[in-house]
Simulated scan of single mutants.
Amino acid sequence: MKRVVLTLIAISSLAACVSAPTGPTIAIMPREGKPFEVFQQDDQQCREFAANAIKDTSNAALKEGATSAVIGAALGAAAGAVIQGGSSQNIGTGAGIGLLGGAAMGAMNSSGKQNQGQVQYNIAYQQCMYSKGNQVPSYPTQGGNPNYAPPNSGFKPIQ
């Protein structure tokens, strides 16, 4: 019973390390002439949009960590039983070692999924903010100069 409680504590502490993105990690600027209050409204709406866009990814990161820890504990217990002929002490030792290994692998896997979630969040946030006319790094400003004409390439179509 004591080992079960310790296993559950370890799994829950691993799960506590995984969290959904709390906000964008990119800088967006309001377009010229846009009131700051309107920009703040855009920001709030786009944060909600981005959070809804990645719900499945953040849940997958949490499940990945917990599942790996449980599988590691089960495999460790089985290995401890097989290696030492079923001694309960060796089963517990194997389960403990398996839990640690599984938790470590789960933490690495869930960290990768969490990073993937942040990237997806940023992309959704950028798309939303750009669609509202804000300045997004590496994207041209919407609308541009009304007098803008593309440069002359010297190419003339065949007639």
Rank of each mutant, 00 (worst) to 15 (best):
I71S: 02
E37P: 01
A79W: 03
K55V: 13
P146C: 05
D42T: 03
G102A: 03
K55D: 14
A103S: 15
A77M: 07
K2F: 12
Q127N: 15
Q159N: 14
G86W: 09
S12T: 15
I123H: 00
T67L: 10
G106C: 03
M29V: 10
A74R: 00
A61K: 04
N109T: 07
G85Y: 06
G98K: 04
S153W: 06
A69H: 11
S68D: 12
S110E: 10
G154V: 01
A20E: 09
T93I: 11
I71M: 10
P157F: 08
A149C: 01
I71T: 02
G133R: 03
L6D: 12
L99W: 05
T67P: 02
Q41V: 10
S13C: 13
N52A: 03
A103I: 04
E64A: 14
E32W: 07
G102Y: 08
P137R: 01
S12A: 13
A73Y: 08
E32R: 08
L75H: 01
A16H: 09
S58Y: 06
I54H: 03
S19C: 03
M29Q: 15
C46H: 03
G85H: 08
K2H: 11
Q126M: 11
Q116G: 02
T22I: 01
K34C: 02
Q142R: 15
A60T: 14
A79D: 00
A107C: 11
G92P: 03
A53H: 11
T93Y: 07
M105V: 13
I123R: 00
S68A: 15
V38D: 07
Q89N: 04
